[in-house]
Design a protein around this nucleic acid. Structure first.
Length: 844
DNA sequence: GACCTGCTGCGGTGTG
């Protein structure tokens, strides 16, 4: 891959003296200069770099902070490229495509693009196509696409499934991918890569530009965007770094601040005071229920703020969210309590203050949130951390260090997800058809599928042609068939329709609409939560206490209730672990504390806590691994604090429990958080004997890691859960027609049916392998687990016998998550695995 | 005495 682009330089030729900005003979570059000058805006060197590169037909990735003019950089670049193509002004179909990850951004983008467009190509218009586009507008576009189109990756894929796709995209010159960092790390990104490969094949000179926030792996991000064309791509860094301030609200009485917990309501008065002092505040929480609780408590404390503060999260109805967003834009709201639903999107200029309640979990996430304030060139972005428990003060200090050092997480790019490929094959079979060799070569030009083997390709092709080994007899799974010329096409209209209805990679659980009896939708809530409610029960949702009345056709009908308490809905969502970057930064701070260095307000505030910890036990540092042994009525506890994030701790704790139980039979309860884990045995266990130098070396060994991890966890159940998503994306499960969704139970049943059938009759099914791989890579972070083990082996083990739970242990003790792991069951499980292995070996 | 977790994003019938 090419070297990173050096800082752009401005040559004399670029410095244009605009004496006559409207002059007919002005070059497009001069016209752009005039356009900027008319607005009194500065042209940044990075913008010129992008323009020159695009004019010459180069693709690239531009990373820049928000509000730095990056939109104009790539948009003018696209227009310059079009003009450099000679017959530029002629319309005749699509020329520039703009991809955005969110519908809500599409309309704003169209608006932003219109003015600059008028300057260079006044007879053009920008169209928009998303799921919201009206059918009449669609029909118009289907006849001929507008010269510039703003759309989503899913809508682009749908366009590629049209028989006339090639004709529609024939004249496409430039693709812009906005917010590429949001897409690259998930399967939407894989789908985008496949779509771009298709467009590049039709026009080998296609110019592609991505816009991205700063990441730890920018070069890889560019490679994923440009595929095998990345060698000629350029990586451009946007305008001067924005100043970012990270600070912390310190509790009034740090010594009385809770050791554990996530809600943080002790900080309510401080947060209210902060909101009071500023015009407009965004307060981010980590979960939807936390947002609900904070909103409710804030209103109770400040009833006069009714109508001035609002709630925003992903389960609230679109109309509610749009109302909140308008209020923010117009500066009518004093504060909004939100989840990451407001991470992206509309630029809310009036936002003056950003609070992060609870752990930010990652540096990139923290920066993203800081960027919601001071959203204009030259202004400072500031985010204030609001701790919800004592150790988050430590994390806050570490977060500031990590930001200052620019230690930003990398985003992992999914490696050849076959479910997305299977979907793509049907899409392309619809979109004019394909021959095997040609499409294989094309798919391999993407970064995600660069290592796709011929065997895997054949498997995927066979899977869409015959339904694989086990579904051969079902005609609905013979989705593509070769004609006499070897061109694979979709033979059946029903299959085509079902496929188009299922395009995309976002899989969500079935949910129930929450509606007032009197009319109006408040939002949606998980079926499992509603199913536990009886008529007359109260619950908190959308910032109100509601009374559940009845269910009717997948909708829950409610009315406003009196009283102030109700059940809090629980949604199932992601469990984002603390990033390595943040964890290391926190560990570094502990290291300093162990030497008596407490720098900054956060560290000062936890001096009492850390001193107590040191007095009762010790401090975990980057060089020592702390283990605590405690007895209680519950049994014998072992606590360890590797500071590796919760998903690694899940693997680590299960692994240790399993390896322990080979030495001494026993049943352990496991408790996990981002800082460490606890193993609890109800019967006496000699931890000391297990934690000798030789013992710990065995426990932390990376030998047989994979086997041991698989054996220690119920990996097959985890894989089955993963498989639900894969089966949906691969098109095995039809989700039903819009407006009449299948219930969650039906969806689950059919996916587990496929899982079982494949396991029994088609063990070589690569979708099963993928499910297992995704569990290992994403849920258990096997690579990070291995790294952690290797790192821990280097640390000195410090074992302390403690009388009671230390400040570090306490949060683990109260953690609700308990996972039983019995040796008896384990023995059975291992025996079964051995049998299965033997059987597999003998059938070879 | 301490606590009561879990994000976001998109798309889509039929036919006279």
């Amino acid at each position: 891959m090419n070297a990173r682009t050096s800082r752009p330089t401005v040559t004399q030729a670029d410095a244009v003296d605009i004496t006559s900005p409207t002059a007919r003979d002005a070059t497009p570059l001069q016209q752009i200069d005039a356009w900027f000058a008319a607005r009194d805006w500065k042209v940044f060197p990075f913008q010129r770099t992008v323009w020159r590169a695009a004019q010459k037909g180069k693709s690239g990735l531009l990373h820049a902070t928000t509000g730095s003019g990056k939109t104009y950089a790539v948009w003018f670049a696209a227009l310059l490229r079009v003009l450099s193509q000679g017959a530029g002004r002629q319309q005749g179909g699509l020329r520039v495509l703009w991809l955005t990850p969110m519908r809500a951004l599409a309309a704003d983008t169209v608006r932003a693009l219109e003015e600059p467009l008028a300057a260079l190509l006044p007879d053009w218009q920008v169209g928009m196509r998303t799921g919201d586009t009206s059918s009449s507008e669609r029909a118009r576009q289907d006849r001929k696409l507008p010269p510039a189109l703003v759309t989503t990756p899913e809508s682009l894929t749908l366009l590629l499934s049209r028989t006339d796709a090639r004709e529609q995209f024939r004249r496409l010159d430039v693709v812009i991918v906005d917010e590429w960092h949001e897409l690259m790390g998930n399967k939407r990104g894989s789908q985008t890569q496949l779509a771009l490969a298709r467009l590049r094949r039709w026009n080998p000179d296609l110019v592609i530009w991505g816009l991205s926030a700063t990441l730890g792996n920018l070069q890889q991000s560019q490679d994923a965007l440009l595929g095998d064309a990345s060698a000629n791509g350029v990586l451009v860094e946007g305008a001067s770094k924005k100043r970012i301030v990270v600070d912390t609200l310190i509790p009034d009485h740090p010594s009385r601040f809770p050791w554990g917990g996530h809600l943080g309501l002790q900080m309510l008065p401080a947060v209210i005071a902060e909101i009071d002092r500023h015009q407009t505040t965004l307060a981010f929480t980590n979960t939807r229920s936390q947002a609900e609780i904070w909103y409710q408590n804030m209103l109770e404390a400040k009833p006069e703020w009714a109508g001035l503060i609002a709630l925003h999260h992903g389960s609230l109805d679109k109309s509610v969210r749009e109302w909140v967003e308008r209020g923010l834009k117009n500066g009518e709201l004093k504060a909004v309590i939100c989840t990451s639903s407001l991470d992206l999107g509309v630029d809310f200029l009036p936002v003056e203050r950003v609070l992060q309640i609870g752990s930010a979990r990652g540096v990139a996430r923290l920066l993203q949130r800081a960027g919601r304030s001071g959203h204009a060139p030259g202004r400072v972005s500031r985010v204030t951390l609001v701790p919800t428990s004592s150790l988050e003060l430590l994390e806050a200090a570490g977060a500031r260090d990590a930001v200052a050092r620019g230690q930003i997480e990398a985003r992992a790019i999914p490696n050849k997800p076959l479910d997305v490929l299977v979907q793509h094959l049907v899409t392309i079979a619809l979109g004019g058809g394909f021959t095997s060799q040609e499409l294989y070569d094309e798919v391999r030009t993407t970064y995600a599928y660069r290592n796709l083997t011929l065997e895997e390709w054949q498997w995927a092709l066979d899977f869409v042609a015959r339904g694989g080994q086990s579904l051969t007899v079902y005609p609905e799974y013979r989705r593509v068939l070769p004609d006499e010329h070897g061109i694979f096409r979709v033979p059946d209209n029903t299959i085509a329709r079902r496929h188009r209805m299922g395009i995309g990679t976002i899989v969500s659980d079935a949910s129930v609409q929450v509606k007032y009896l009197s009319g109006g939708t408040i939002g949606s809530i998980e079926e499992s939560f509603i199913s536990r409610l009886k008529a007359g029960d109260h619950f908190l949702f959308g910032g109100r206490i509601l009374e559940f009345v009845r269910m009717h056709e997948m909708a829950a009908y409610v009315r406003r209730a009196t009283g102030s308490r109700g059940a809090i809905p629980r949604w199932q969502g992601g469990r984002m672990p603390l990033s390595s970057e943040l964890a290391h930064a926190a560990l570094t701070r502990l290291e300093q504390a162990s030497q008596g260095m407490y720098e900054g307000a956060e560290m000062q505030a936890i001096v009492p806590l850390l001193e107590l910890q040191q007095q009762w036990s010790g401090l975990p540092t980057a060089h020592s691994l702390l283990a605590e042994i405690t007895h209680s009525r519950e049994g014998q506890h072992l606590f360890m604090y590797p500071f590796a994030g919760r998903s690694v701790h899940v693997g680590l704790a299960s692994l240790l429990a399993w390896r322990f139980s080979r030495e001494q039979a026993g049943t352990f309860s496991i408790s996990i958080n981002d800082y460490g884990f606890e193993l609890l045995s109800p019967v006496p266990v000699n931890w000391q004997a297990l934690l000798t130098t030789a013992g710990i070396a065995n426990l932390l060994s990376t030998d047989h890691l994979l086997e041991d991890v698989l054996a220690s966890l119920n990996a097959s159940e985890l894989a089955q859960r993963r498989f639900r998503e894969i089966a949906r994306i691969a098109g095995l499960i039809f989700q039903g027609y819009p407006g009449q969704p299948k219930s969650n139970r039906q969806l689950q049943a059919s996916s587990s049916l496929f899982f079982e059938v494949f396991r029994k009759h088609d063990a070589g099914n690569l979708l099963l392998t993928q499910a297992q791989r995704e569990v290992l890579e994403q849920e258990l972070e096997l690579t990070r687990l291995r790294d952690t083990l290797e790192e821990l082996q280097q640390r000195t083990l410090q074992v302390h016998q403690t009388k009671r739970a230390t400040p570090f242990a306490f949060p683990l003790m109260v953690e609700r998550f308990r996972e039983k792991l019995s040796t008896e069951k384990l023995t059975d499980r291992v025996a079964r695995m051995v049998r299965e292995l033997e059987k597999a070996a003998s059938t070879r």
